[in-house]
Design a protein around this nucleic acid. Structure first.
Length: 499
RNA sequence: GGCGGGUUGGCGGAGAGGUUACGCAGCGGAUUGCAAAUCCGUGAAGACCGGUUCGAUUCCGGUACCCGCCUCCA
């Protein structure tokens, strides 16, 4: 069994991971509030914990890992968006407008995250489906003296939980001293946080012992993780920005409501995403969504590669340059799959992931190390050229473990065809994800080139080549033929004129 | 103000107390109608100041600078 080591935010140390039950490894990750398209920052924890999910599945077996990631579909931003739509004359009740918006957002989220190669979690609970459990948990907290009702609100009594602040290394007194927020008059203590708040008629609400209202933000994760994963589970993940107050509050709620359980044993936090060295924000104009990138022609696997090239515990800077480097690296990775020709590539099946890759991942998810282990130059040092060809199925399996499936990548086929040509094998046009238009243009280019070779006038060939290059197409000409590949800046619209 | 993280070659970015990380870019070569891609080769580092050590970029302390969190946020 591979020994996995993970940095536990709670102890601030790298520890050997031992699941509570190896036949049922359980992980909970805080998911998105579904009011709008996921921005690039939202995608980082998705890829990070997808990688952990894949590693756990590899080590413990796909049927022995449960990964829960919630959807927060009750939230004031969602309410505000729905109220704005209603004010703008949209039909339907507020509840219907909210439901429509959250449904739509969840659909986008699924599509965008799938494009990044993220597996669907085992369960994706929606907060609104667990209001009953939240009310029950709040009831227990009041019973045990950890919460109190005041003016239609229910508040958690922070002073009743000794370890409050332990996760994020803060003391309640320090925080009060440095507090910048206005304190609601009905709070016993400035740090007490809301479990339940009242809703007026213009807001969605549920009946509760404390009147019609809606849950505070933190209680949903406590209620859902308890309902789906139990009193104690293995890993709780999320962005470092959630460490305080969200995760601190979750721990307080869960541990006070279910003191018999240990709640999450390992806490993992991914660091933030920056864009060109700055935090992504609308005011700086460097804010963009995953969909924006995909629509701009940046493939999902390139985004994934950039994410995986930085350790999850370090801030990751998204830059144009990294994006270009990643697309080159992806091409090289894909190219290796074609080293043995088209016939082999067509029938390529997954072998067993390389130990060097698994070991890197098992070492606190050193994804950069895993990618490095898959570099051709690294592999060439570890294996002789002939052996390298033998382990293509293992290389493929390793890539798949990292969430990349490059079997259909144009570069894999280009390499395979090149191999066939060198070996004198008749080329067979195999399925790749290359756009049809490029295949047609290849044929035309071959004809023009044949004419040019006899006439010694290459101007027509050069003109076509220039147009293709301008559209971001990579033009490769060899004695045997022409290969057109979409490059990093490929823009299909610029090819329309060449039809 | 409190808490946390960082500072490595032109750029990105690792591991390891003493041996070349690696990639990209650059440069030289092979190849090409010209290119592209590919292949071969190649130079370049460890913020600053102290300490521990036979030896530190790697451990310890301090300084400077950068970033994040403390308020919705992944």
């Amino acid at each position: 069994m591979v020994e996995i080591r993970l940095t536990n935010s709670r102890t601030r140390r790298k520890e050997v991971f031992t699941p509570i039950d190896a036949s049922d490894v359980r992980m909970y990750v805080c998911g998105p509030t579904v009011y709008d398209r996921a921005h690039l920052g939202n995608a980082r924890p998705v890829v990070v914990f997808d990688m952990l999910f894949r590693l756990l599945r590899h080590v413990y077996g796909p049927d022995h890992v449960r990964y829960v990631r919630n959807f927060t579909d009750v939230d004031d931003k969602i309410n505000a968006a729905a109220q704005a739509r209603k004010a703008a004359g949209a039909g339907g009740s507020l509840e219907e407008l909210i439901r429509a918006r959250t449904e739509e957002t969840i659909g986008w989220y699924h599509a965008d995250m799938a494009a990044l190669g993220a597996l669907p979690p085992t369960a994706e609970p929606r907060a609104t489906d667990f209001i009953g459990q939240m009310i029950a948990m709040i009831g227990i907290l009041i019973e045990r003296g950890h919460a109190y009702a005041a003016e239609g609100h229910v508040l958690f009594r922070v002073r009743s939980y000794r370890d409050y602040g332990a996760l994020s290394g803060r003391s309640v007194d320090d925080m009060i001293a440095g507090a910048r927020v206005e304190v609601a008059p009905f709070k016993e203590d400035p740090m007490d946080f809301v479990l339940w708040k009242p809703s007026d008629a213009s807001l969605p609400g549920w009946d509760s012992p404390w009147g019609r209202g809606r849950p505070g933000w933190h209680i949903e994760c406590s209620a859902m993780s308890h309902e789906l994963l139990g009193d104690s589970f293995d890993i709780h993940g999320g962005g470092i920005d959630l460490q305080f107050p969200h995760h601190e509050n979750e721990i307080a709620q869960s541990c006070c409501a279910h003191p018999e359980g240990g709640f999450a044993r390992v806490w993992m936090h991914n660091e933030m995403l920056l864009v060109e060295g700055k935090k992504m924000s609308k005011s700086l104009g460097n804010f963009f969504t995953v969909r924006d990138l995909l629509d701009r022609g940046v493939p999902g696997e390139v985004i994934r590669f950039v994410f995986l090239s930085t350790h999850y515990g370090k801030p990751m800077d998204w830059t144009e340059k990294k994006q270009l480097e990643a697309s080159k690296a992806i091409r090289k990775m894909a190219g290796m799959l074609g080293m043995r020709g088209t016939e082999f590539l067509t029938g390529l099946e997954e072998g067993k992931p390389l130990n060097s890759v698994v070991d890197a991942l098992a070492d606190d998810m050193n994804t950069h190390g895993a990618l490095h282990a898959l570099d051709r130059s690294t592999l060439q040092l570890a294996y002789r050229e002939l052996d390298l060809i033998d382990i293509i199925p293992d290389i493929y399996a390793s890539q798949r473990l990292l969430g990349f499936d490059l079997k259909g990548h144009p570069e894999a086929w280009a390499r395979a065809i090149q191999h066939d040509e060198t070996m004198g094998i008749v080329r067979s046009r195999a399925p790749s994800t290359k756009p049809e238009l490029l295949v047609d243009l290849e044929v035309r280019m071959v004809q023009l080139r044949a004419e040019a070779t006899s006439s010694k006038n290459f101007s027509a060939v050069d003109a076509l080549k220039a147009a293709l290059t301008a559209a971001g197409v990579e033009v490769r000409m060899s004695k045997a033929g022409v290969e057109l590949l979409p490059g990093p800046g490929f823009d299909p619209s610029k090819l329309e004129a060449l039809k």
